[in-house]
Amino acid sequence: MSLTREDVTYVANLARLEFSEDEVTALAEQLGAVLNYAEALSGLDTSKIKATEHVLAVQNVFREDEIKSCLTNEEALANAPESEAGCFKVPRVME
């Protein structure tokens, strides 16, 4: 299984990453190699194995519906690069 340059730019776009032409070529090769490595699993006969829906064997970990203390507004915004009127401020987005 190989990865095309188009696959790389498509995924990069979804992840909001920008690469040069050379980087795209290199990544197509490297990621392709990773996929090829994982491809070895397809050679196994899994017809008698139950599909893995989740990797953890644990189930039903819940919390009670009880209110605990929150951060203050100041604490919540402490690491925000920009804030205004008690809110996080981000570059303008369309409504």
Binding site: D65, E66, I67, K68, C70, L71, L77, G86, F88
Partner: peptide, 24 residues
């Protein structure tokens, strides 16, 4: 209509001051 959020214990109450019902 739960009292707290889905994955943390912050209240779900409507109409509070901005960013006062948050946690990590």
């Amino acid at each position: 209509g739960t009292k707290t959020k889905i994955f943390c214990s912050c209240p779900t109450e409507f109409g509070q001051d901005e960013n006062t019902h948050t946690c990590p």
